[in-house]
Design a binder for these strands. Sequence first.
DNA 1: CGAAAAGTGTCCGTAATCCAACAATAGCAA
DNA 2: TTGCTATTGTTGGATTACGGACACTTTTCG
Lengths: 190, 190
Amino acid sequence: MSKDVRKIKTERDIQQALLTLLNSKTFRQVTVADICQLSMTSRSTFYAHYLDKYDLLDKIVDGFTQLFENRVGLRFKQIINGETDNLLRGLAVDMADNRDALLTLFTVHEPNADLEANFRTLLLREWKRFIKESGGKMKVPEDLMASMGMNVQMTVIQWALSHGDGEIDDVAAAVDTIRKAILLQIQPED
Amino acid sequence: MSKDVRKIKTERDIQQALLTLLNSKTFRQVTVADICQLSMTSRSTFYAHYLDKYDLLDKIVDGFTQLFENRVGLRFKQIINGETDNLLRGLAVDMADNRDALLTLFTVHEPNADLEANFRTLLLREWKRFIKESGGKMKVPEDLMASMGMNVQMTVIQWALSHGDGEIDDVAAAVDTIRKAILLQIQPED
DNA sequence: CGAAAAGTGTCCGTAATCCAACAATAGCAA
DNA sequence: TTGCTATTGTTGGATTACGGACACTTTTCG
């Protein structure tokens, strides 16, 4: 385990350096030397922590993916009586802390490191599970419903990240109203 | 000299930690343990760089004092024909980079570490020199003039630091107009 | 094409930092 | 006062990071 503080600090610095560099360069344009220079770590130290820059990116993406996975799990568990009001807004708020990093990583799409794809996969899985557990038969395929939920969710998250926190509530409320209306249409009457 | 990157990094982290802590605590309330915890350095390392927290504060203040001294020197040398228009605004702009740190340090007044006092001393010295070299006989004591210049200067700097960069020009222009008017009154006619 | 430049990944000796322990002092409450 | 707790500095061995070298691959450019 990473016990020594020095490891934590260097990994934090290295990861932050890559994120910063990604604001002005493509991931493929970034060199290990760039990362080391900006983070003020020696190359030998870099390779003591990561196999290469791809490994570094993987671990960063994995970290945020895990964080998101935890939050998604919590938020879905907090749903009461099928009321998903807080879900939409909640997840967007959860991610607000790492606004800069997430916005940057959403622009990176590498084979084994695609944060946006990971988010979509996680959301889709949870939506499918939620719909199935909700039990009610629907007039449209459950997968279609899950996909819709996932897409609406991602839209709100990305919108909230790009814009400030000011109008999140309004947007979430608006989108949620639309979604509810659709749900009412396709769900069978009680 | 600080050649090794590790020294630079730890000193940067330690100094930044103290500045951050000063936002929520008095300098005397800050403990070495606090600084080490926030900066993620061990106490033994702290004492390898500084005698105690007072020594740390001294060195931070000294750093900004030197930086200011250089800028003051440059700005005074750039004065042409006694036109001090750029001086006022220029120094305020120079210090804008370290806005947070300076605003914090201006609230600290320890016996051997008082940044605001240092700034005032430096400005006063330069104003005296400038007035003396300007040569013209005045109707009021030169020290009074220097003191006035120094105070006006500090006012603009602190105002610019507290408020944004947006209105600096307006304020500097207004203050400079007033100062010029006074100068015309007290200077003998050519 | 071919040479120069830049980047990669690895190695090792040295320097800096960590960690845990320690005694000593200061502050504070009973 | 007396104890108790927090803080201060200090020390030594273990761990980590640094710096620079090396061979190798990739890119760049004439």
